[in-house]
Simulated scan of single mutants.
Amino acid sequence: MATGKRAIELSSTGGPDGAAPPTPARAARDTRDRTLADTVYENVLARIVRGDFPVGEKLPTEHELSVEMGVSRPVLRQALKQLREDGVVVSRQGSGSFVRRKPEEAVLDFAPIGSIADIQRTFEFRAAIEGEAAFLAAQRRSERELRQIQTALEELDRCVRTGELGVDADEAFHAAVCAASDNHYFMSARNSMKANILTGLNLTRNLSLTKSQERLAMVQAEHDAIFAAITARDGEAARRAMRNHIESARRRVFDGDIGQA
């Protein structure tokens, strides 16, 4: 704990790096800008999905979009940055932004506008948290906990064979991995946003049901890889397998027609 002069320095500067803490007004503005950026992101995404902005075509200029949507250009740029990270648009220096991929319309059926940005952030959170939980589960799991993971995996296998959605079984698998980490904070973190997680699982599993059996088998193979690594007590492999699975699920949300943009 800082004392004396050092404590005064930390208090006056806001931290050891000298950065002043954000004021309430600044924090409120940042939150408002993120919310606006999410709204613009989902608006542009929906228009791409509907075909208003075709694959390979250039988006309207930043000025045109910002005026049309009533937001500042910095807010618009935040939205376009997220679309680039999702692989939906691509920027060409000096030419603007072009539509690279058209996600399937089913995305809007299973995830109404207003939820997609949160779903994507949930995937980011899960990749970080559950990757580490899998690493520790591989090192610490008991035989009983391993059987619980296996039971959930077998239920997922059954759902794949019978064409069932399998959201509950998928959630049970991931929860069992977190429980096997022997650190209750992983479970607490997941439980704090369980509704968001279930929304994401519902979206990705519904989208998978619209695909071929090979797609379902590929997703299940990712679960198998996590279980195999935890069984072998290979923490690094378990972390990689879990992160790969969740990041792949995030990318699969935007599967669809892809152009040469």
Rank of each mutant, 00 (worst) to 15 (best):
R101I: 07
G114K: 08
Q93Y: 01
E104H: 04
Q120C: 06
T122Q: 07
V107S: 10
S115F: 14
K102I: 15
E104K: 01
F98T: 00
R121M: 13
A117M: 05
E105W: 09
I119H: 02
G96S: 15
F123Q: 11
F98Q: 00
S97M: 01
F123C: 14
T122G: 09
V99G: 00
P103R: 00
F123V: 13
S95H: 12
F123D: 04
Q93A: 01
P103G: 02
E124T: 15
F110M: 11
E104N: 02
A117S: 14
G114F: 05
S95V: 14
S97K: 00
R92C: 13
E104P: 02
A127R: 12
E104T: 05
R121L: 09
A128R: 09
F110A: 04
D118W: 04
E104G: 07
A111R: 02
A127P: 15
A127E: 11
S115C: 05
P112K: 12
K102H: 10
L108T: 05
I119C: 10
R121S: 09
F110G: 12
I119A: 12
S95W: 11
D109I: 06
Q93L: 00
E124H: 12
R126T: 13
Q120E: 12
A128T: 14
D109P: 02
P103Y: 01
F125C: 07
K102T: 15
R92H: 12
I116S: 05
D118Q: 11
G114V: 14
D109M: 07
I113C: 06
R100W: 04
P103T: 02
D118C: 10
I113Y: 03
S97I: 01
A128G: 06
A106Q: 03
G114P: 11
R92I: 14
F125A: 14
S97N: 02
G96K: 01
P103Q: 03
I119P: 03
G96H: 01
A127C: 10
V107W: 03
I119W: 10
A111W: 02
L108I: 07
G94E: 14
F110P: 09
S95P: 03
D118I: 10
A127W: 12
G114S: 09
E124P: 07
S115I: 14
K102F: 04
Q120I: 13
V107K: 02
P103D: 01
E105F: 09
L108D: 10
F110H: 11
A111T: 08
E105Q: 06
A128H: 05
G94P: 12
R121H: 06
V107F: 02
F123Y: 15
I116P: 08
P112F: 15
D118G: 09
S97R: 00
D109S: 05
A127I: 13
I113E: 10
A117V: 15
D109C: 04
T122P: 06
E105M: 08
V99A: 01
R126H: 11
S97T: 02
F110E: 03
A128D: 13
R92W: 12
A128F: 08
E124V: 15
I119D: 03
K102C: 07
Q120P: 06
A111L: 09
S95I: 12
I113Q: 05
T122Y: 04
A106L: 06
R121P: 08
A128W: 12
P112A: 07
P112R: 12
P103F: 00
Q120W: 05
I116M: 10
Q93T: 00
R126F: 06
I113T: 13
A106Y: 04
F125P: 05
